[in-house]
Design a protein around this nucleic acid. Structure first.
Lengths: 217, 217
DNA sequence: CGTAATATTGATCATGTTCAACGTCGGTGG
DNA sequence: CCACCGACGTTGAACATGATCAATATTACG
């Protein structure tokens, strides 16, 4: 099904708010983010995109992108042209269902992010982001024991958690000092995941398909 | 297509986080909200649901609800059982597309809410919520001139904007004092919508289908 | 080796929270 | 009819969290 391999460097926009959507991208490696910006430059990352996930599935039911997508690391992805994608969706019911399912999980994650941004304090927010990232990376084989890569800058983490870079940095130090995380050389280690989840008020029920994917391995 | 008319009073939960989904509800009148709660009671409203919108469309592709849905006013809705809904979706392509489109717009709104919660200050946030609500109500005929109903408590508005009730109250006063809104007796009047949009850093591109619906009247 | 991006630190400031009290309104039962 | 009650709205004061500003490491990389 995959075709048209592409590469992109770190910090590139693959598509921007207002752009028309004429293809679907499936990420093979690397981390990306969906983000929106305000006129004055304030930026909010509204979701991460991990390997195995797709970028714009179905967005072409709407006319243009409501948000932008940028790479946070070098990325390899496959591109499926709109017409071909629509054929695939029409001919393979289970494939179509998988894509829709991904869209629905993405929406559930989005709701959790809103809750994170609206009702959790800084430490909880960052802890929550780490828990979620860890759980999302696990079923795609990107977790090794209690560690995973965390290849993003503190500015990205700040924009994802709605904090200033300075405060994010201090929050990381607090998490480190309390032994909840070890973060160095772009590697995140979570010595005690349950403890981190407690600190984050993390409740995982919104990530079911990730669960399911894990169960069916 | 509609069947099984139901009524619910104000402040009732129609479905809760963790519940299985076995029917789709379409709202005929009244306002509802999607919300999530943390263990300690903190509550975040993640979206409003207005007349003409559906509650759980496709959620049954996932096994259980990741969030709860509550009424904020008395509500009338129609219920479609899962089997029948699936038949409808399979037999009527344009209906299916309409439902998916609604899901995608809802996701776009969700992203905007994340941005609102993460990067706007209190006054901007509340102003933004009012602008969005106004624009979403317009195409369903619930806007009269520069006024619409705003039948929700300040606690609901606080939970939707991630603010405390006290600060929300003060923010409303600030909006009133600057002449950007008139809000009394559950009616919101926006004397100068463009001015309110400026104050909110509001950029409407994420609400396209609402636009489209309006254009095709 | 030099340079820019990223990370860290300290100090000050601002926004928004919390707590506690009081006011207002609408409904309800005696 | 009116007194009571509960939900909702409003106010003030003290406090806390996180932002901002400015400077200084540290790292990555050409």
């Amino acid at each position: 099904m995959l075709e048209g391999l592409h590469r992109a460097g770190s910090g590139e926009d693959l598509i921007s708010e207002g752009d028309p959507v004429d293809s679907v991208r499936v990420v093979l490696s690397g981390w990306l983010c969906r983000y929106k910006t305000l006129e004055d430059g304030r930026r909010q990352i509204v979701n991460f995109i991990f390997p195995g996930e797709s970028c714009d599935a179905h967005a072409f039911l709407l006319s243009v992108m409501d948000h932008s997508i940028a790479t946070m690391t070098p990325v390899v992805y496959s591109e499926i042209k709109r017409a071909r994608f629509e054929n695939l969706m029409a001919s393979d019911r289970s494939l179509a269902e998988a894509f829709w399912c991904e869209t629905l999980v993405s929406a559930a994650i989005q709701r959790e992010w809103a809750t994170n941004l609206g009702r959790r304090v800084a430490l909880e927010r960052v802890a929550h982001l780490f828990c979620e990232t860890f759980e999302r990376l696990r079923p795609v084989g990107m977790v090794d024991g209690n560690s995973c890569v965390m290849p993003v800058t503190q500015m990205d983490l700040a924009d994802a958690t709605g904090l200033s870079v300075v405060h994010l940095n201090r929050t990381l130090q607090e998490l480190r000092a309390s032994g909840l995380i070890i973060l160095r050389e772009r590697t995140l280690t979570i010595p005690d995941l349950d403890a981190l989840k407690d600190a984050a008020l993390y409740s995982p029920s919104y990530l079911q398909p990730y669960r399911a994917a894990e169960a069916t391995r």
